[in-house]
Amino acid sequence: MNVEQVFREEHGRLLATLVKRFGDLDLAEEVTSEAIEAALRHWPVDGVPDRPGAWLLTTARRKAVDRLRRDRVYAARLALLQVEFSRADAPAGESLPDERLELFFTCAHPALAEEDRGALVLRCLAGFTTPEVARAYLVPVPTMQQRIVRAKKKIKQARIPFRVPDPHELPERLPGVLQALYSIFTEGYAAQRDDLADEAVRLARILRNLLPDREVTGLLALMLLVHARRDARPALLEDQDRSLWDRDMIAEGSALAERALTGGYGPYGVQAAINALHDEAPDFAGTDWPQIVALYDVLAGLTPSPVVALNRAAAVAMRDGAAAGLALLDALADEPKLRDYHPYRAARADLLHRLGRDAEAAQAYREAIALAGTDTEQDFLRRRLAAVEGRS
């Protein structure tokens, strides 16, 4: 068994269980790290135990109790915990409880800043170190440290409970959890950080097992259908070698997308259905563009946004021609959210190129390169620019 894989799989469950028991995220993180350090010392010599989660939980509990014994403020709480441990501390047969759902909703609580939610999910549930989280979000480590500290402080100060929201609270709270996971996935996919995208998919699977909601199913389907094309990046969809696509992942994602749309439409389910049409098409020309435009119309009704309008315009260009798509893009030129959004500039460049307006296309590609956030995206756009300038 791969020890690193064990740590990734057990970290979130262990931390969630300790937070539930102690009610203190900082303490839980510290003893989780100490338990993993102890495992790194013992497991290479003694072997990975049959129940690695139980081993880590027992070790972390003991370390937490040692810390609490030194702090009189926690004396009363410690007495209660020791009674609890005496009943449950049976490492040989104990299975680690799965209380991650509480931590999902705590990390994505609406009281936290949006930029902090995904960072907390990676740090707490995926077991990433702070430098790894910083690298995922392309920010300096001190900046990420401040974000994580700020989020933890907010949890304490606002007394955000470590619990699953009541049923009437779920419609407000669940979107934050899903958005945090999807942000992690899109960042990993765009930057070709497959480890990051894989973690987002794994966490989405966990969330769906814990909460089989229709939109959770839709999000997992969407991730799988996009991630299935990872080996064909960074080429545009029309230029990708479809033999490189993961057909098993596509089949799973398509089945989940169909399930997500049973009984109603949700934003992630609709996006999954759009990507299923892309993945199931025999080739780019054979894509069902009228159906994709129709689904974008549904999505625009559910979550109207400039980005949805941009994607719809690209689909209209394939259905009705480049000129029709460009007219829709030009109508979005004054949208503030698209001003610094490089895919908008790249989409305009592509349609201008198709219409033979290469000087304008080259300028749009230069603008897109200046706005792109990763080296991978910039390199791809530079190649597109070189092709346009070559034809000119």
Rank of each mutant, 00 (worst) to 15 (best):
Arg135Trp: 11
Asp66Tyr: 06
Ala180Tyr: 11
Leu326Cys: 11
Gly286Glu: 06
Glu172Cys: 00
Val83Ala: 06
Asp279Cys: 10
Pro44Ile: 04
Gln363Glu: 15
Leu295Asp: 05
Gly356Glu: 15
Val19Tyr: 02
His353Thr: 14
Phe380Ala: 15
Leu25Gly: 05
Asp231Val: 01
His109Lys: 00
Leu18Trp: 04
Ile36Phe: 07
Leu236Val: 13
Leu381Arg: 08
Ala221Lys: 07
Glu9Thr: 13
Arg383Ser: 15
His227Cys: 03
Leu224Ser: 07
His353Cys: 13
Ala90Asp: 15
Phe162Cys: 15
Asp340Met: 07
Gly47Asn: 11
Pro161Gln: 03
Asp340Gln: 11
Ala92Glu: 10
Leu96Cys: 06
Pro131Gly: 00
Asp46Leu: 14
Ala197Arg: 08
Pro290Ala: 08
Pro234Met: 06
Ala221Glu: 09
Glu238Gly: 14
Asp24Val: 01
Arg202Ser: 13
Asn209Val: 03
Lys63Gly: 12
Arg51Gln: 03
Ala309Thr: 09
Pro49Gln: 11
Pro140Thr: 04
Ala16Phe: 06
Leu57Tyr: 11
Glu30Ser: 12
Glu215Cys: 01
His278Ser: 08
Glu115Gly: 10
Arg77Ile: 01
Leu385Arg: 08
Glu238Asp: 13
Ser86Thr: 07
Asp231Leu: 10
Ala314Val: 12
Val133Asn: 07
Glu169Leu: 00
Ala200Tyr: 08
Ala221Ile: 05
Val149Thr: 09
Gly118Pro: 03
Ala60Arg: 00
Thr32Asn: 13
Arg229Pro: 02
Ala294Cys: 13
Tyr182Arg: 09
Ile148Thr: 13
Val298Lys: 10
Asp98Tyr: 06
Glu335Pro: 02
His11Glu: 07
Thr143Ile: 04
